[in-house]
Amino acid sequence: MDNLLRIQDLTQVFGTRNPNYAVDRVSFSMPDEPSILSLVGESGSGKSTIARIALGLMKPTSGKVYFKGTDIFTGDRKWQKQFRRDVQPVFQDPYSAFNPAYRLKRVFNIAVRNFDLAQDQRKAQARIEESLDSVGLDPDDVLDKYPHQLSGGQRQRVMLARLHLIRPRLIIADEPVSMIDASMRASFLKLLVSFRDNLGISTLFITHDLTTSMYLGGRIIVLYKGRIMEHGDTPDVTRSPQHPYAKLLINSIPVADPSQRWDSMLPASVDSANRASMNRDRCLFAERCGQVMETCWQQEPRVLPQENAVQRDVACHLYEKTLENN
């Protein structure tokens, strides 16, 4: 069985004189069974670039993206049309995702028309209403409204209702909850989980906020400067991160409990504006790592599976060593 999504040695370089490796030989896959995979990292880690390439919005410098076994940039028109239906985006900003001049029912009517979702108007209407119900919105209340009459949280749920109607195989969601209120986030994420469990829709979830990916569960990839640092089951990685960067990331989450405050000051950051070195033949986290060794400056760590952990890959010389010693 082919993987639903397989990304192989994906590289995206911006600029030629000062090449900026947004994505650097990244490989991962999502299984055919419904699943959720989170890509987390800070700004500049390449997570959004991967999302844009996987959506087919831009061609990578090198590497391949396969959807159900087919390279997404080689499929014919018919395949492309099916791909457009099977892979659906949810973007960050719910305020710019809708055309402000049209009522919201147009969002659904266009989807019905483009993807031939219903034979006649009455059936279409029934399906649209069912989809809105499923995300907790009242069809009579929403369909005749304009986007500006809805809050950010409602708009993101309208996006989910549209996906419920289209029933894609894969949702690629780029920071979908970062602009909506905390109290709305949980219900949005809950819907993504129920889409996986009840409709068989997988999600590639891009976020800088680890708490949201913890909530979603599934698997997680921690990216740093375009490279994979750690890859594993979300509960395992968040409970016992192995890569020093993943550790730093998880220890920096502000826990909403005043009795669990950060006990130590983080060391003052290395000024990231002055690049320590343009050399990429090394661990890119070396200058910020507390456990840096000489090898880290000279050799790029490979993404290696960890022996004692189930399906956990870590790119760090610290763990390569223990593996060899064993």
Partner: peptide, 14 residues
Amino acid sequence: SILQSGHETDQVEI
């Protein structure tokens, strides 16, 4: 309603 590290899906009230 806030998402907390270590909390499971069902522990969040909406």
